[in-house]
């Protein structure tokens, strides 16, 4: 474990807690894409298949349970909670996220470190996570208004993977033979997808004005 990875995990944890807190306290999911949340639930479900078979550390297992629990409860809130579901804007959240799942699965069948069930799904979860934010960014551009909590959620979600990139650089130089091109490239692409959001988020913060993405 290194400081970059720990910072990344804490930032990731903060992002899901911000979203869960927003939905739980104000009982609203306005501006939040259910598609992105469903994709994240799939990402964690396919990435943590080893949760019961490989024990890495208490921290690792605990965090896996937190990410699984939070992502599925956010999906439950947005789909089934009688009050929260009313604020879900399904007419605007129309990104066909199944068009992301199939290509990621096919790609994972071709590009992986080992052609086994778990490894292919683990690779699939990396590719899917790289594009999972797209429905949320599309919804943002459609609705144009973005409340602070949703903005913070997306910012933290993008920042966590940026911290992971520093973690990979650190591990590359400190651990011999530590080379994992697949998460590195998927993680880099994922962070780049947040590029324009970061740009507008930073400017709205600097000029202290409401965050608006260009149409």
């Amino acid at each position: 474990m290194n400081i970059f990875r720990f910072a990344g995990d804490m930032t990731h944890l903060a992002s899901v807690l911000v979203l869960l807190l927003k939905i739980h306290t104000i009982k609203s999911c306005a501006g939040v894409s259910l598609k992105t949340q469903e994709l994240y639930a799939i990402v964690f479900a396919t990435r943590y298949l080893d949760i019961f078979t490989d024990f890495i550390s208490l921290y690792n297992t605990f965090m896996k349970l937190v990410f699984l629990g939070s992502s599925f409860s956010i999906v439950w809130y947005m789909r089934s909670h009688k009050i929260v579901r009313r604020s879900y804007d399904k007419d605007q959240d129309t990104f066909r996220h199944y068009f992301l799942i199939v290509p990621c699965l096919l790609l994972a069948m071709i590009i992986n470190e080992k052609f086994t069930f778990r490894e292919v799904l683990w690779t699939f979860s990396l590719f899917l996570e790289a594009v999972a934010i797209l429905p949320q960014l599309v919804l943002l551009q459609r609705t144009r208004n973005i409340d602070n909590l949703t903005g913070q959620y997306i910012f933290l979600l993008g920042a966590y993977r940026a911290f992971y990139i520093f973690n990979w650089i650190y591990r590359y130089f400190t651990e011999p033979h530590y080379v994992h091109w697949i998460p590195w490239i998927a993680g880099l692409l994922q962070t780049l997808l947040y590029g324009d959001f970061f740009y507008y988020y930073f400017h709205s913060w600097k000029n202290n004005k409401k965050l608006q993405l260009p149409a």
Binding site: H12, D54, N60, E113, K114, T116, R118, E119, W122
Partner: peptide, 10 residues
């Protein structure tokens, strides 16, 4: 290679 690749990152 190893039988099962252990991923220690989240």
């Amino acid at each position: 290679g190893q039988a099962v690749i252990q991923h220690d990152e989240l």
